[in-house]
Amino acid sequence: MSQSVLKTLEKFSLPLVAAAFLLLAPILTVQRTTDFIIFCIFVLAYDLLYGYMGRLSFGHMLYLGVGAYAVALFAEHVSANPFFAILAALASGVAVGLLLGPIIVRTTGACFALINLAFNQVGFFLALTAFAKWTGGEDGMATFFDTVWILNFDNRYTVFGFSLFSLILVVFLMRRLTMSPFGILLRMIKENETRVQFLGYNTHRYKLLAFILSTTIAAFSGALTILNYTYVTPSFIDTTRNVEVIFASLIGGAGSVFGALLGGVSYMAISNYLPNYVQRWEMFLGIALLLLVFKFQTGLWGFIVARVSGFGVEKDR
């Protein structure tokens, strides 16, 4: 019976996710909920690499930043149409994935983690100093968008609605991606890449595809961040912020769409409300990470699934 609860949950996942965030909005305020939603999209992008393909990146803020700056630059220099700006962000996400991916996906494990971090650091330098003439350096840039049809992105509710729609779209895409043969392939690469080559697959190609998908979705979340905040600064791509998405991935449970959503919401809730009570934020984060790593590796979603199916087994007996 409990198994069927999970099954139903899977079946109606899209409306359920939408409903959950619609319920959160009056509790948390609309802008904050929008923030939660956008971060969830970023966690989903991250989880495609970490949870499914087993590659831990310590530099994913870069890809978010690429999308954010692409929107800002596009809006300033080309057109203030928000949809074209988002398309530009997606294109930049693909471009950065195509450019860095061939180098990055050759590596695994610790090298993968750090090479992303190194490129993130370079990106931070580019935004802060090298391209300061265009990016506004430390001050960042503010953006203004035209109203398209009835969609005015100065309106908080429009941004909320659009972000929620985007999240549903990304969740749908992620579910298709992870339930396809490609999804199985990614999980196989996580477990034993060499063996996958002996099943006749050029793993490099698929790793690259996964990487580009991840950078593109991350860039998309960056674009939405700009819609929500209307400005971008280099602090958006600060390398020390990568731990946020890692934390979210771990606490939610890596390698599952629901886990990523749960993780995104949990991290945002903790980081939004806990600093009011806890002074030493980094120490809290460090200790919490250690606890997750040592005691709670399956994350919240894994915990829930184990509980629910555990009951199911007992009933069967």
Partner: peptide
């Protein structure tokens, strides 16, 4: 069963379409 899917896909004629491989049901 999932251990076999990719082998069967590789040897079979279905999923020659890449979009289907990436987004279709497994």
């Amino acid at each position: 069963l999932d251990n076999l899917i990719l082998a069967a896909v590789r040897a079979g004629t279905e999923y020659k379409n890449k979009v289907q491989f990436v987004l279709g049901s497994s």
